[in-house]
Simulated assay, not measured.
Amino acid sequence: MEQLVVQLQAVGFSAYEAKAYTALVEAGRPLNGYEVAKRSGVPRSTVYEVLGKLAARRAAYEVADESDSVSYVPLSPAMLTSRFRSNMDHVVNSLESGFDLLSTPAQARLTHAISGRPDLLDRCQDVIRAARTDIFVSVWPEELDVLRTDLRRATDQGVDVSVLCFGDPGEPIGYSYQHEFSSPDQVLDNVGCRLMVVAGDRERAVIGGLDGSDTWGTYTDDAAVVAVSVEYVRHDIAMQLLMRRTSGDESIQEYWRTAKELMRLRSDHGEPAERLRQMAKARGRR
């Protein structure tokens, strides 16, 4: 019940209104002011004022019995939450329209550093939720689990979603692919961290690295960096599809393992992550 009171306050109820409303719902029958005060902890001196405010919100209604004694019943929680959702959608739509009128061509591009896994994933969710046309994601299972709900919602809204996962992606989301030709352990050894990319609408991207307790990353809407991020994911997906098609060809497998040209590209074990760490530390000292 305490959590419900907190959540109702988050959508505009006062603490007393939230307590009175939850008491009405919990009772399952009409309550008079004395009963609401007793059940909710709202002071008797103010309970009728609080119930009046709930009635004004149309979150509760007065009912009278044969003796004309006034009691109160709540608007059903299903209808209340539906009303909140509708009101919030209206507010958000109005904000979008208003900001569209204010928008002017950007004079500068935004790029900022991110530290800490929660902040990194929050920024990834921002990019996913803002996307309207396409999303490209290169990710590891641990982080995909956090982003899954938002990615699923994006696909349901018609956004074209492409996901490349370094490990089992679980239930497919949009166009999902597992990085198969190099194992996750090999990739981790080569890169030195769980490198991830989330790009939305080819307008904004988050690039991050996670290694144990260390997390660092960057958000950007710089068109050049976003383009490179998208092409990185697209190219990696294309490589996986080609390798999957030729997986039975031993000569290709042998070439991948032993070709000097490819071995040279894999020779800097952990160096990409180490450079990212140094950059993150340098930012932290500023």
Rank of each mutant, 00 (worst) to 15 (best):
V159A: 10
H235P: 02
R275W: 02
T258N: 07
L102P: 03
S251F: 02
S176T: 15
R85W: 00
I128T: 13
S69E: 12
D100C: 00
D160T: 05
I173H: 12
V92G: 02
L147T: 14
S183F: 01
A56V: 11
D249P: 02
Q186I: 03
T46V: 15
L151V: 04
T220V: 10
M239W: 11
N32K: 12
G158N: 08
A227H: 10
R44V: 10
A223N: 06
E96H: 05
V63P: 01
G116E: 14
G98D: 03
V5D: 07
L54E: 01
G212D: 11
R266P: 01
G28F: 04
R152Y: 10
G192K: 14
E62S: 14
C124K: 12
G192A: 13
T81M: 08
W256F: 08
R245P: 01
V127S: 05
A27D: 02
M88A: 07
D65A: 04
L4F: 08
H235L: 10
N190V: 12
Q157I: 00
Y48A: 03
R123S: 06
G212A: 11
V42T: 04
V42D: 03
R257G: 04
I114H: 06
W256T: 08
R285Y: 09
P141T: 02
A131G: 09
C193M: 15
C165K: 07
D236L: 07
R123N: 10
E2H: 06
A108G: 00
V25S: 11
A199C: 04
H112G: 06
L151G: 02
L51M: 14
L24W: 12
G209D: 05
V191S: 05
E26N: 06
A280E: 02
A259F: 01
Y34P: 01
V6C: 03
V198A: 10
E49C: 07
G167N: 06
R194K: 15
R202C: 11
A130W: 06
M79Q: 07
T104F: 06
N87W: 01
T46N: 12
T246N: 05
